[in-house]
Design a protein around this nucleic acid. Structure first.
Length: 405
RNA sequence: GGGGGAAUGCCCGAGCGGUUAAUGGGGACGGGCUGUAAACCCGUUGGCUUUGCCUACGUAGGUUCGAAUCCUACUUCCCCCA
C-alpha cells in the first residue's frame, strides 16, 4: 500500500480526477482549485452506524485513493452527530444516538476495511460531534434558516415520500444542513459521494458560500448495482459482496452476477481498461466473469487467493468436487441411539436447515446427500460410529462424526 | 382541535363471516439444464418424528355454531380540514 506520495503532479490531468464520476459541480471551480497547486482537501462522510463495507463502497474509496495518489489530502468526517438523524435517502426513523464507544468501535472497523483500499495513515479523521456538540438550539435555528422548504423538497427522495404520503420528520431536513456544515468546518475543497448524495453535497456548497468560503467541488460517483442486478448494492438487501468476505464467498457471489452487469463492474471495481473488458466479455462471458471474480478476490485477499478461488470454484461446480475446507463437527453422544441419528436432526443440529420442517423439505426435494448418496427417505438415519460427509444443495458441505454408543 | 383511512406470512400485496396455513408477485432455498452460485424451466417456502397436531393475519377483549374478515378499547402510521 505504501506508494510514494507527491510524486505525481496534482494537476496532472483533470480527466483523471473525473474518472468514473457522474457529475462535477463545477468543473470551473475544480480547475481553479487545481491551478493553485496545493494539495486539495477531499472530504468523505463516514456513517458510523454501520461498519460493514462492501465493494459498492469501494467505488468512492477507490476514487479517494486516486486523489491520494495525486497528492491530495483525504479528510474523513465521522458522522457521530448525523448518525442520530439518519440519511433520509434510506429508511427514515430517528435512530438512537450511538454512544461514543459504539462510534469509535465502528469507525475503527471502517478504517480497518478502508485500509484495504486507501492509505489510511495519510487520512485526516474528524468527528463532527466536535462542533455539533457545542451548538445550541439557537445555532440550530440559524442553520435551519439557511434553507427553504421548497428547496428541501426538490430533493427527489423527499418529494417522492411526500407524494407517496409517507412521513418525513422535521429532523430529517437537518441532515443535509449538518453535512453541509461539516464542509464549512473542515474547509473542504472537494467532497466525494455517490449520486444519491448529490443534494447533500450541493448544500455544502451553499453553506460554504454563506460562510464566506470558496465552495467545495462536488464529485458524484455511480452507485454500484448489486448482485440482484437492479438495486444499488446494500448489505440489507443481501446483494452485496463484503470487503471482508472470505475468498470463496467473494468469488461465488461475483460469479452469480448477472451477465449484463459485468461491464459496469469491470469499470467500477477493477482497473481494467474499458475496451479490454468489453473485448473479454464479447469473447467469452463465462471466462470474463471468472476473471472479474478473480480480480475482486485478488484485490482484497491477494493474487494467490484469487487463483485458488478460481481453482476451487472449477472443482466444485464443474467437476462436482469438494471445497478446500469443510467444516467438521461431532454430534453430542446423547443425540445418538442404537440406530444412529435421524437425518433431520443432523441437518438442524448442523444449522444446514433452519427447522425440522425445512430439513424435511430439503430431503423431499432431493437436496440432501450423505457421502455422495442422495437421501430420499425422511426417516433415514446416520449410523453410529461413522464419519460422514453431509451435503445440502451444491455448495453446503459438512463433515460430521456420529459417535458410537 | 375536527374528520377519514390503514395495520396480513422474509418483503410487497390480495382476501372483507363458512373448502383451505390464507390468491399473486419479489426474495430465498431445492431440482433440472448449462457457459457460472448468469439465463431458462420445474418445485418448495409457519412449527412439530407429520396419515395427524399446534400456532398464526397490530394488541386485548367481545359477537357467532364458525372471524384475517363484524363490534369495542388500545397501540402505531397515513391523509384531509382547522
Amino acid at each position: 500500500m505504501g506508494r510514494p506520495r507527491h510524486t505525481l503532479p496534482m494537476t496532472r490531468s483533470i480527466d483523471e480526477l473525473l474518472t468514473n464520476t457522474v457529475a462535477c459541480n463545477t468543473r470551473e471551480d475544480l480547475e481553479r482549485k487545481l491551478k493553485a497547486g496545493r494539495p486539495l482537501r477531499v472530504k468523505l462522510g463516514v456513517d458510523p452506524s454501520s461498519a460493514d463495507l462492501h465493494i459498492g463502497h469501494s467505488v468512492v474509496l477507490r476514487h479517494m485513493r486516486r486523489l491520494q495518489d495525486l497528492g491530495h489530502q483525504a479528510v474523513f468526517i465521522i458522522g457521530q452527530a448525523t448518525a442520530m438523524v439518519g440519511d433520509p435517502s434510506g429508511k427514515n426513523a430517528m435512530r438512537p444516538q450511538l454512544t461514543r464507544e459504539d462510534v469509535a468501535a465502528n469507525a475503527q472497523t471502517y478504517f480497518d476495511q478502508a485500509r484495504l483500499i486507501l492509505d489510511m495513515d495519510a487520512v485526516e479523521v474528524v468527528y463532527n460531534s466536535s462542533w455539533f456538540d457545542e451548538m445550541g438550539f439557537m445555532d440550530a435555528i440559524r442553520l435551519g434558516g439557511l434553507m427553504t422548504v421548497a428547496r428541501m423538497m426538490e430533493r427527489d427522495t423527499f418529494e417522492k415520500r411526500y407524494k407517496a404520503g409517507e412521513a418525513i420528520g422535521i429532523h430529517e431536513f437537518f441532515y443535509p444542513l449538518m453535512q453541509g456544515r461539516d464542509s464549512v468546518e473542515v474547509k473542504a475543497d472537494i467532497e466525494l459521494g455517490g449520486t444519491d448524495q448529490t443534494f447533500n453535497l450541493l448544500v455544502g456548497r451553499d453553506l460554504m458560500r454563506e460562510a464566506g468560503l470558496e465552495p467545495q467541488v462536488c464529485l458524484t460517483l455511480p452507485l454500484l448495482r448489486g448482485l440482484d442486478g437492479t438495486q444499488k448494492m446494500s448489505k440489507s438487501l443481501g446483494n452485496a459482496i463484503g470487503l471482508t468476505d472470505p475468498p470463496r464467498d467473494m468469488f461465488g457471489k461475483a460469479m452469480s452476477l448477472p451477465d449484463e452487469l459485468m461491464e459496469e463492474w469491470y469499470k467500477l471495481v477493477t482497473d481494467v481498461p474499458a475496451a479490454d473488458a468489453a473485448a473479454a466479455i464479447a469473447a467469452s462471458p463465462r471466462d470474463a466473469k471468472v476473471d472479474l471474480a478473480r480480480r475482486i478476490v485478488a484485490t482484497y485477499h491477494g493474487d494467490e487467493a484469487g487463483a485458488s478461488a478460481v481453482e476451487e470454484f472449477e472443482r466444485i461446480f464443474r467437476q462436482k468436487g469438494l471445497p478446500d475446507e469443510i467444516p467438521e463437527s461431532e454430534l453430542p453422544g446423547d443425540m445418538v441411539d442404537d440406530d444412529g441419528v435421524w437425518i433431520i436432526r443432523v441437518l438442524t443440529h448442523l444449522g444446514m436447515a433452519a427447522s425440522a420442517s425445512a430439513a424435511r423439505r430439503l430431503v423431499k426435494e432431493g437436496g440432501v446427500r450423505v457421502d455422495g448418496e442422495r437421501v430420499n427417505d425422511e426417516q433415514a438415519r446416520v449410523a453410529p460410529g461413522t464419519e460422514s460427509l453431509v451435503q445440502v444443495g451444491k455448495r453446503r458441505f459438512h463433515r460430521v462424526t456420529v459417535p458410537a454408543r
